[in-house]
Design a protein around this nucleic acid. Sequence first.
RNA 1: GCCCACGUAGCUCAGACGGAAGAGCACACCCUUGGUAAGGGUGUGGUCAUGGGUUCGAUUCCCAUCGUGGGCUCCA
Length: 597
Amino acid sequence: MSHHHEEDHLHRLRHSAAHVMAQAVLEKFPTGKVAIGPPIEYGFYYDFDLPRALTPEDLEEIEARMREIIAEGHDFVYQEIDEAAARQLFADQPFKLELIDGILSAGTDEYGEPLDEAPKLSIYKSGAFVDLCRGPHVENSKEIPPKAVKLLNVAGAYWRGDEKRPMLQRIYGTAWESPKELRQYLEWRAEVEKRDHRKLIKDLDLISFHPEAGPGLAYWHPKGGRMRIVIEDYWRKLHLQGGYDIVFTPHIGRAELWQTSGHLNFYKDSMYSPMDIEGQDYYIKPMNCPFHIMMYKSDIRSYRDLPLRWAELGTVYRYERSGTLHGLMRVRGFTQDDAHIFCTPEQIESEILRVLDFSINLLGGFGFKEFKVALSVRDPKKLDKYAGANEMWEQAEVSLLSALEARRLPYERMEGEAVFYGPKIDLHIKDVLGRTWQLTTIQFDFNLPERFDMTFVGEDGKEHRPYMVHRALLGSIERFFGVLVEHYAGAFPVWLSPVQAVLIPIADRHLDYARDLADRFRAAGLRVEVDASGDRMQAKIRKAQLEKVPYMLVVGDQEAEAGQVNLRRRDGGQGGAMAVDAFIAMAQEAVGEKRDL
RNA sequence: GCCCACGUAGCUCAGACGGAAGAGCACACCCUUGGUAAGGGUGUGGUCAUGGGUUCGAUUCCCAUCGUGGGCUCCA
């Protein structure tokens, strides 16, 4: 993520706003120490070491002072200085001194990244604030629209992101070219908050968490369960059509297995303590791969058997630090839509293309059509830290690249981002609010086939090492579900809705008719409920509306007599009176076409 | 795990210099049987997260623990 060479005006404006904020903070806390303060995607932040914790009132005060500083109209003045002058200038700013050391000796910039050009120290002065900074900035503080700046929150952040170093206070702010853009951004944030899956899964009675029974563990209620079944059934259908076999493996395995796989060496921090079974240590699985490999090795494999594509909705448990848990997006137990592809070197290119197409098709079914792709490859400077032969890495990379190019998918090449055992591509889907979520990962593994001594017999009668590709497309069912909830704001397309239609009898005498209809609809494969409460019709409609049920079917005297239902859709649209069969056909069509309504 | 904030009924939230716990929604019952987003009444429901401490007295103050939230780090 190289965000700091941006030169456009908005970035300069935000960077300058960060300086103005630092000035305001230092005025309030003259003994405060400043760390770094860059522009970021929607604004800026600055990290401080202050004598006390900041309060929301402090933020208001600082923000008010920022507006005054902006109005004072300070020029941002750039100046290059030598080391001695810099050290003197920042004598009481230890973080800045450390940055100076970094720039001069290690040749790294203020973010700790390597510098291309010769080390050069520069400062920016604006008003009473001087910062070690290479800019760029706006010319004058008046370029920052005072009413388009807002401080958002305070959070802890480690100096240089290192948890062994001091915890600083980070103030996040946002800044825009105009108050209107600020308002739009704040509205966007409000929309994000409204769609928060943690709120919606509770309101819609889909999933709950029970911290007292263990944090980070999801409980799928009946309505969440219905949706999960729909998701999984669709997943299974596509996998079977797509040439996968579906397998099931245990949840625990002996220590020896995890020793062989290397997990006890490299992944132990994420694994739970072992349990003792008849004197043997067993671990609950954090991954499914070793089990699939056991199955692979249960027989002699011929090149004629390959490729093998084994998929499993495998539930794994991983230790995540308590502070990192976050609703469904980060949990301690989750089900991966995992699969492993074992194939020959000749097959690898077509297999990669196949899995890429498969993934795009699967995600498309859920309404995700836009992707960002990251191709993670080796760090060319550290080729020795990777497992697997050089030519395997090269072939793997070619196969990933050519698949992306065959489908004309723009991608970002991330050098050094590959895991030690193989290169990978990750798909980030874009949701309706423009946010991206990493779900899909398609990953080569040059390590496990080696460790488990996996082989297949080739045409030549000799043993060869198969290629192994690990892939998870939805990622985890839990996270994917959370993304779905936020993407649709809980108003799911008909095929996913836990309740597709609610029958709303106008008076109690219409209950029998409503129940008869419910049976007919269920027989036709629809998920329906009858609202048999004592509420009035209007209240029943309101309730169904809040539950975001796609179809509300009002039945009263007229409908019962004519064998009809009176349709109201979730979007407020009136379908009017229609024959029961006509409604069934319409609903089935909406399901079949995965329509919203 | 770390920094900061927070934890009151199933949900959303009031509350008190430390002196007998409140509302709305939900739920139950009764009345109302209604035509496209809330009809009315009555009632049930809380060890004020847990455990210590200070105090005549703690839901309120202090400490610890657990959990949640905003971030950092890490990641499906």
